[in-house]
Write a protein that binds this DNA or RNA. Structure first.
Length: 879
RNA sequence: GCGGAGUUAGCUCAGCGGUAGAGCAUCUCGCUUACACCGAGGGGGCCAGGGGUUCGAAUCCCUUACUCCGCACCA
């Protein structure tokens, strides 16, 4: 080898250079060719709100592993990157920025404000790209998309218009979730419930014309100002006579009817009397419709009380209003009691502000017709979800889905393509209108924008050039749609995954992807959620700077099983040691390899010795395992398999076994040549196996091996080759390893030093085995530190006897007093062997076991018994 | 309330019907010319409790307890 590796593994020395090398090579960009087998995947577009966190590092590492694996496996592979405009979230961060400057978005006005958000977007989209680059993401940046791009916006507009024309989008006055802080309606999925220790207020409502009261209980006394009725259960004897009478609403002194409503009222709960506020509670809203109760809006869009709440309250905040209402009730003697009450408060997931249910005119998607095919697609296996347990959650949600509120009273987003005229006509149109098609009056465009997830729902096809009817021949769409795999967090299963499935099926007639893998949440070592308040947040870029991208990626892969992922410094450190190991093993190999891959020629299998056959056979098995586990999204199993092989088989054993030959201490020149060739082979294949997990270090090393391909990332991914399988070589090599381990154990147990040398007697059960041990006597001598290995001789009396992997061995130790501790150890060994033997014999003595268990199990048990018997007898001779 | 997941070595988890595993941590011994981010070796578990199915259960079924996550939500 001409080139050598640096003495120390320092990722910062080459990671950026390697990434630039890939970009220059154009390896991230697939060809647009319908004939070639393709693999495509779209990134879950990160929000342009800020920097990427460790969760992004995870989801993008997992995608890159799959993408690199598929690309090396011969697929024409596209990983399409991009970002999401993230309506509310981005608007919020920019508003906060403005706040620091002492202005609000209203001071700027819509147009100027949106300009500011675009500036923000440009800056952060660049930053996000840089971060993904540092992680090694092999995404095709030439196809980078943003949800507000012109093409994607056209697709959004087309979908909106089409759904409207099909009667699946409507505009209506309805009870919606209103966020007073963001001053917009939000959809059901954006509402989160927070368990809160609140209060339950019991209030007396006087009954008109009597001196009786009805006691109602409420958690939100301020809403009573908008009460327009009191409900009891129609069959409740306690109150039956009151139905039809009026109660007097305290403070407001307004008569409100007492109605019977079996749906709203649960007789058993509380006093069995419910105040009805149709304008500020979903259940009350419906009860109000049933009983013809008027809707009085007492809380406005900003969470302040309206004029309808009366002069005492108009304009004050809803929180303050609550205190004042309670105070007034107390003064009037109508407050019965206040109980502690634990209940769930609905808050806006983005800003934690308590939701105000409110009647408002909004745009909705009639969802049921879209949901049905989406349910079927998962049910009939067109789409699989991994881990499968999420399918139940998916069905549960889809089957109980409610219409989707898609309008947002925001400025940042896709403006709804509806045009209102002064005569009250509304027209939805692909083209911008200036006059009303119905009456010719002037029109203005709807000011609301669409829910961010409306555009994200089209992501798998809008990013590939689909823009509605007539755009289906877009080349990327033709070649890469439908995509194959979607990898994302389970937290956006409803927000995003479900919507993509619905939209994809509706508009392209195809499921947008066939496999969904939902990854877990990254947590800290103690399983806690990472949060700024706890201070346990790990910034992926810090880790990359510290230990390199490869160590971080490998740690994430090893930890990712679909469940929550505990991540801490110790884990990352452990796997950065592994990268270091790869580096140093490669360094060692390259000191001996003297011909590059291009000129190495095929391996002459007939000349291979047992140890070489063994390592190649093991490598082949690992290759099978990795390919299989990756196809199942078992990143943990796949990465652990290579880790185990590379470190504990290749480095710990094979390299050590090859050293005597490589260093010229043993064997012929041809032996050495062959050993070098095998060393190169195993290193090459291992690097290729590892590449999807550790792209940088594998490339840095592999380039120096002089392969045919210009980059490891387009070299073929190893596949299983039957000729490499060799169970006999594995059996014999395992025996050698076990014998060496046994000698090492005994050395330690008996208190000998590494310098003490022993004589080993070993016997094969046939001439072939004897020859094998004769051939590898030098290895036993070297690695077990012996002075002699005797294959023929009879061990002298007093030698330590044992049976290892079925082979009888005897070891002659130099004179040394055997301590009580050592005798104890022998005794325990015997005890352990005897216990197992007895258990096995009992099994065989059980007629039902022999009769019912599969024959191979019975045989294996018999074989084990024979082995244990032999071992027990041998061990007993040591006493 | 409905649904899902979990409870295995000190920690984090894998194994999901046939002799209890890994990583980290811990202890002992070693600076053997790739690597001390190393090597060799050791200790440590009635697989949450109970019941059942089976020749055989950490693994399947039932049940209890606790934890977590969705969804729904009673004022």
């Amino acid at each position: 080898m001409k080139e050598e590796l640096a003495t120390r593994y320092e990722p910062s020395q080459f990671e950026k250079r390697i990434y630039a090398f890939w970009e220059e090579g154009g390896y991230f960009t697939p060809v647009v060719d319908k004939e070639r087998p393709k693999f495509s995947i779209v990134i879950p577009p990160p929000n342009v709100t800020g920097r990427l966190h460790i969760g992004h590092a995870l989801v993008n590492t997992l995608q890159d592993i799959i993408v690199r694996w598929k690309r090396m496996s011969g697929f024409n592979t596209l990983w399409l990157p991009g970002t999401d405009h993230a309506g509310i979230a981005t608007q919020m961060v920019v508003e906060k920025q403005l706040e620091k400057e002492g202005i609000s978005r209203f001071d700027l006005g819509r147009e100027k404000f949106v300009e500011r958000v675009w500036q923000w977007k440009e800056q952060h989209a660049t930053e996000i790209k840089d971060q993904l680059t540092r992680l090694g993401a092999s995404a095709d940046w030439s196809r980078e998309r943003f949800t507000l791009d012109e093409g994607l916006s056209r697709a959004v507009r087309y979908v909106f218009v089409k759904l409207y024309d099909d009667g699946l989008i409507y505009r209506d006055l309805a009870m919606v979730n209103w966020c007073p802080r963001c001053r917009t309606a939000i959809s059901d999925v954006e509402v989160e419930f927070k368990e809160t220790n609140g209060k339950l207020y019991h209030i007396n409502y006087p009954i008109e014309g009597t001196d009786r009261f009805l006691t109602v209980a409420t958690t939100r006394p301020e809403t009573m100002l908008g009460d327009t009725g009191v409900a009891v259960h129609p069959e409740d004897e306690r109150y039956a006579d009151l139905i039809g009478k009026n109660a007097i609403l305290p403070i407001m002194n307004r008569p409100i009817p007492i109605v019977g409503d079996a749906i709203l009222v649960d007789r058993e709960f509380g006093t069995g009397v419910v105040k009805v506020t149709p304008a500020h509670d979903k259940n009350d809203y419906e009860a109000g419709l049933r009983n013809n109760l008027p809707q009085v809006q007492v809380i406005g869009e900003e969470g302040r009380m309206t004029d309808a709440a009366g002069a005492d309250f108009s304009g004050i905040d809803r929180k303050e209003a609550r205190e004042r209402v309670v105070e007034m009730l107390r003064e009037q003697g109508l407050l019965v009691k206040i109980d502690q009450h634990q209940h769930n408060v609905a808050v806006h997931g983005k800003c934690d502000t308590p939701i105000e249910p409110m009647i408002s005119r909004q745009w909705f998607v009639k969802i049921e017709p879209l949901a049905r095919p989406a349910i079927d697609a998962v049910r009939n296996g067109e789409i699989t979800i991994t881990p499968q347990s999420w399918e139940a959650t998916y069905f549960n949600w889809m089957e109980n889905i409610h219409d989707w509120t898609i309008s947002r009273q925001l400025w940042w987003g896709h403006r709804i393509p509806a045009f209102h005229c002064t005569n009250g006509h509304t027209t939805v149109s692909m083209d911008d209108l200036t006059t009303c098609p119905q009456c010719g009056a002037e029109v203005t465009q709807e000011t609301d924008v669409l829910d961010t997830w409306f555009s994200s729902g089209l992501w798998p096809f809008s990013t590939l050039g689909w823009q509605g009817e007539g755009s289906e021949d877009a080349p990327d769409y033709q070649v890469f749609y439908p995509t194959d795999t979607l990898i994302t967090g389970f937290d956006i299963l409803f927000f995003w995954v479900a919507r993509m499935i619905m939209m994809g099926l509706r508009f392209t007639g195809k499921a947008p992807f066939s496999q969904v893998f939902l990854n877990g949440l990254v947590r800290d070592e103690q399983g806690r959620k990472m949060s700024k308040t706890i201070g346990n947040v790990i910034d992926p870029l810090d880790v990359v700077n510290e230990v390199g991208a490869d160590a971080l990626r490998f740690t994430l892969a090893v930890s990712a099983s679909g469940r929550d992922i505990p991540l801490g410094k110790s884990q990352i450190q452990g796997y950065s040691a592994f990268v270091n190991k790869i580096w140093n093993a490669s360094r060692f190999a390259m000191m001996h390899i003297d011909v590059d891959l291009k000129h190495a020629g095929p391996i002459e299998r007939d000349n291979l010795k047992t140890v070489e056959r063994w390592i190649l056979s093991r490598l082949n098995a690992v290759t099978r395992e990795v390919n299989k586990q990756l196809s199942l999204f078992r990143f943990d199993e796949a990465s652990k398999a290579i880790y185990q092989f590379f470190w504990h088989e290749f480095c710990d054993w094979y390299i050590e076994m090859a050293k005597p030959v490589l260093l010229g201490k043993h064997g012929t020149d041809d032996d050495r040549k062959l050993a070098k060739r095998v060393l190169l082979e195993v290193l090459d294949r291992s690097l290729r196996l590892l590449h999807p997990f550790m792209p940088f270090v594998t490339e840095e090393i592999w380039l120096k091996l002089g392969g045919v391909e210009p980059s490891i990332m387009i070299a073929p991914y190893p596949i299983t080759e039957e000729v490499l399988e060799d169970s006999e070589a594995e059996r014999l090599a395992n025996a050698v390893r076990a014998i060496i381990t046994t000698v090492r154990n005994l050395r330690a147990e008996r208190g000998y030093t590494p310098k003490d040398r022993f004589t080993l007697f070993i016997r094969g059960s046939n001439p072939r085995e004897s020859n094998f041990f004769r051939e590898y006597a030098y290895l036993l001598t070297e690695l077990a530190r012996l002075n002699e290995v005797s294959v023929e001789g009879e061990p002298p009396a007093g030698a330590h006897l044992d049976v290892v992997e079925g082979f009888s061995i005897a070891i002659v130790f130099p004179e040394k007093v055997v301590s009580a501790e050592q005798l104890e150890k022998v005794r325990r060994d015997i005890e352990k062997t005897r216990t197992e033997l007895e258990a096995m014999q009992a099994k065989l003595g059980n007629e039902q076991f022999v009769r019912n268990a599969p024959p191979q199990i019975v045989q294996a048990t018999q074989a084990r018994v024979a082995e244990l018997q032999k071992k027990l007898e041998t061990l007993q001779q040591n006493q």
